[in-house]
């Protein structure tokens, strides 16, 4: 009962974190929200993997976020291509309507995911229902984020969210050590290449 409640809490927290990433305008808080997401991914991964292996997901996720955040904090010049809401960092106001639009779309998509998650469980019966919903949330909201926020930083966070959702689902199917390592490598590769792109863009601007 306690574990089930914990999973429900994890689902709610991950949803809030994803929603913040979709509408938020502070890259530091977005990084924090992503770090929370990886905590949730660890929690659901530990359903199917030994704790030591599930910890790999937590650590590589935090490492990926750390790579991105460190790069962002060292960038002196920013533009739309680096972070889409960079002007709010300089005290300028952002329009509310795009954020509202994203929020309403997220709510609609969220309802659709809950309604159709049973189809995924028919395909993969070994998955837990909350695990399926959380995985699909991360997967689909990652795609939404990549679509709506086309800066390098937001794309990186979107891709990491998307891969995190896939990992929540895939650990329920395959628990190979090499695959866990390779997927960790993929997350780190995404973070590293995006950090590199951020750096190159910033240098070009200077």
């Amino acid at each position: 009962m306690f574990i089930q409640t914990l999973r429900w809490i994890a689902l709610v927290i991950s949803t809030l974190a994803i929603l913040y990433n979709l509408i938020g305008n502070d890259w530091r808080k977005m990084g924090l929200a992503s770090a929370i997401e990886f905590g949730i991914i660890f929690l659901f991964a530990s359903l199917n993997l030994p704790i030591s292996l599930a910890l790999v997901k937590l650590l590589e996720g935090w490492m990926a976020i750390a790579i991105l955040e460190t790069t962002m904090s060292t960038i002196s010049v920013m533009d739309e291509a680096i972070f889409d809401n960079h002007f709010t960092q300089m005290g300028r106001k952002e329009f509310l309507s795009p954020r509202l639009f994203r929020l309403f779309l997220a709510i609609l998509v969220g309802i659709a995911i809950v309604a159709n998650s049973s189809l995924v469980r028919i395909l993969f019966p070994s998955l837990n229902s909350l695990q399926t919903i959380t995985g699909l949330y991360l997967l689909v909201f990652g795609i939404l984020m990549i679509s709506f926020r086309q800066s390098i930083y937001s794309s990186a966070i979107g891709l990491l969210t998307f891969m995190g959702g896939f990992e929540v689902l895939f650990v329920g199917l395959e628990s190979s050590v090499l695959l866990t390592g390779l997927l960790a490598l993929v997350d780190l590769a995404i973070a590293s290449v995006c950090a590199y792109l951020l750096y190159v863009r910033s240098e070009a601007l200077r």
């Binding site: 990549i146 891709l159 998307f162 891969m163 895939f170």
Partner: peptide, 10 residues
């Protein structure tokens, strides 16, 4: 290019 390649993976 990076996004499309990452999306194909899962």
């Amino acid at each position: 290019f990076l996004i499309f390649q990452a999306l194909s993976l899962p």
